[in-house]
């Protein structure tokens, strides 16, 4: 035993020197842009002022949190965030699975390819464009919807003044943007199913419904569960860009459409209330971490290979 621990580490370091050098840029990046900002989380307990910065601003204890809870802000944005994302998750995944199953059964290459390409189109455009689309549809003066209502001799509607409408419009937009993309993932899962299973089912005289119920859906089940758990883990973030571009700073709709991300963003960009925004952000990070760990626990139970850690 001539090698002490220190010597061994030194040798390991020298042998891996080029590796370490190659890893350095990414490590530096993660240090600066991910680890340094974590120190900024203390802002949740401070009243930020520009001269003091992160470290010099005065402490206020739990005041920011107290305000967030008493004013009902936390309850409102958490409710909206969780409920919207649950609806997004269920509607989008369900539709994507249905689409994948149907496309798998269709034999015509032209229909399959054409449908596929068109459904993938919305994935490529930015959410700014989604905002433009919504404007085109629902704008009070010139929007398509009101054009049609006027043509039918009805009174035009100001959709931006009807909070409840957005509980339907937002999931629809979310489906429009993501269903095609998600169905591609499921389609890959469906095409991975052994053809022989289908062949055997055909010989046994199974109807198409039986085939889907007994072969396709069980084969997709692990993938469906995994994707849903993945997304449940990140249910507190998500679709900020959708909400911001569609709703913007429309105060009429805050009660119905304010999610945690939009609240934090507004505190930073419009209200300049850094402490409040940081407190909501810390709440989101911690609650989110808890959800991810829970999701991971279940993924591990059902589908060990897919677990994060």
């Amino acid at each position: 035993m001539t090698h002490t621990f220190l010597q061994r580490e030194k040798r390991g370091f020298r042998e891996n020197f080029i590796y370490l050098l190659m890893l350095l840029p990414v490590l530096l990046y993660f240090f600066i842009f991910h680890y340094l900002p974590m120190t900024g989380l203390i802002l949740a307990f401070k009243k930020y002022n520009h001269t003091g910065g992160i470290f010099g601003s005065p402490w206020v204890g739990f005041d920011n949190f107290r305000f967030l809870f008493i004013s009902g802000t936390i309850a409102r944005v958490t409710f909206n965030t969780v409920l919207y994302n649950l609806v997004f998750l269920i509607t989008c995944q369900f539709l994507a699975v249905v689409i994948a199953i149907i496309l798998n059964e269709l034999k015509s290459k032209i229909i399959k390819k054409g449908v596929h390409s068109l459904m993938f189109l919305p994935y490529f455009v930015s959410f700014v464009v989604v905002g433009a689309i919504v404007y085109n549809f629902f704008n009070f003066e010139y929007g398509m919807v009101n054009t049609m209502l006027r043509a039918l001799g009805k009174e035009p509607v100001n959709v931006y003044g009807i909070p409840i409408a957005w509980w339907f419009i937002m999931p629809f937009l979310n489906i429009w943007k993501w269903a095609g993309y998600t169905s591609v993932i499921y389609l890959a899962g469906v095409t991975g199913i052994d053809e022989q299973l289908y062949e055997a089912a055909r010989i046994d005289g199974a109807t198409i419904w039986q085939r889907i119920r007994v072969i396709t859906i069980p084969a997709l089940k692990p993938l469906i569960i995994t994707i849903i758990l993945f997304q449940l883990g990140s249910i507190l973030k998500g679709q900020f860009e959708l909400f911001y571009n569609v709703i913007g700073n429309n105060g009429q709709l805050y009660n119905a459409t304010d999610v945690i991300d939009t609240y934090v963003f507004r505190m930073l960009v419009h209200n300049f209330d850094i402490g409040m925004g940081a407190a909501a952000g810390l709440y989101q990070s911690l609650f989110g971490l808890f959800l991810i760990l829970t999701a991971n626990y279940f993924i591990k139970k059902y589908q060990k290979d897919y677990a994060f850690f």
């Binding site: 340094l36 900002p37 974590m38 989380l41 802002l43 940081a278 952000g281 994060f308």
Partner: peptide, 20 residues
């Protein structure tokens, strides 16, 4: 590296770091 994808400082601390 992995940890950063499940826990982050969030938008505001990053913003202050970038700007200030």
């Amino acid at each position: 590296i992995y940890i950063t994808s499940i826990f982050s400082g969030g938008l505001i601390p990053l913003y202050i770091l970038m700007v200030r």
